[in-house]
Design a protein around this nucleic acid. Structure first.
Lengths: 130, 130
DNA sequence: ATGGGGGTTCCATCTACTGGAAGGTCAAGG
DNA sequence: CCTTGACCTTCCAGTAGATGGAACCCCCAT
């Protein structure tokens, strides 16, 4: 399989796939003409990367997960731990964003949004330690 | 005021303040010895930047908001529009993270998390278009 | 042979900082 | 007067995770 094909099938742009090879997440073989020759296993990994990245796992998380994936003797507990930590992190991010959202929504709500220059958004944002 | 002082008062690291000068968000005066001399207005702007960044506004959003702030004749509607767009973006991010969270939570829940190698997290992530 | 749609490499750019080296300035203490 | 240490300065490099573009190669159909 050439890069365009695995790009379509994995959902990752070709550029990104080359980048993933560059940082050694994948090591596709090469044809005689220099083209990358992707195996089914490569495609699986790329699909995995596409989904894991979409779920917010960092590249280094993905590297660890791929290593576990390739390790026949790994324990599912190891995988569950990484995923669990990431889940906690997502929960923290959601909580942070919600707090952000509420603060901002309050400012927007209080702003007249008309032609006058007074704006609680700007004054609210410049208050120290609000 | 020297940079350390405004750093303490605005909550931004000195490094970040120098960076903000570099990208022309602020233009502090200079003392004879070359030290940056911050005015109260500079401090207000930095405090604004600190809070706006914490609320997830991009640097370019901040630049636009600062320009509006300095513009005596701006309409609050202009400010409200920027803030409103950002609010929508935050809502989208929260929704994305929640979807992520639910998918990941499902995988984590289904994983035995013991010494056996079977792990629904890994198999789940490698399924195409799941 | 030529045109188009692949593929290849390498280098630059993006966001928003952060770290570190090398050195100038200033106030206090001996 | 000298040193110490906290502060300040500039500049250069690096981070994550790609992405854009230039310049070039390869292969197939017309």
């Amino acid at each position: 399989m050439n890069i365009g094909h695995v790009a379509d099938r994995s959902g990752l742009p070709a550029k990104t796939i080359r980048y993933y090879e560059d940082i050694k997440l994948i090591r596709p073989a090469r044809d005689a003409n220099g083209y990358r020759a992707f195996s089914e296993a490569d495609l699986h990994k790329l699909t995995f990367l596409s989904r894991a990245r979409a779920l917010g796992f960092s590249i280094e998380d993905c590297r660890a997960l791929l290593a576990l994936w390739e390790d026949q003797s790994r324990a599912s507990a190891d995988v569950k731990q990484i995923a669990g930590e990431h889940l906690d992190e997502i929960d923290r991010k959601i909580a942070d964003l919600k707090a952000m959202r509420d603060t901002l929504a309050g400012l927007v709500r209080d702003c007249a949004g008309d032609g006058r220059p007074d704006c609680p958004i700007l004054t609210g944002l410049s208050k120290p330690r609000g």
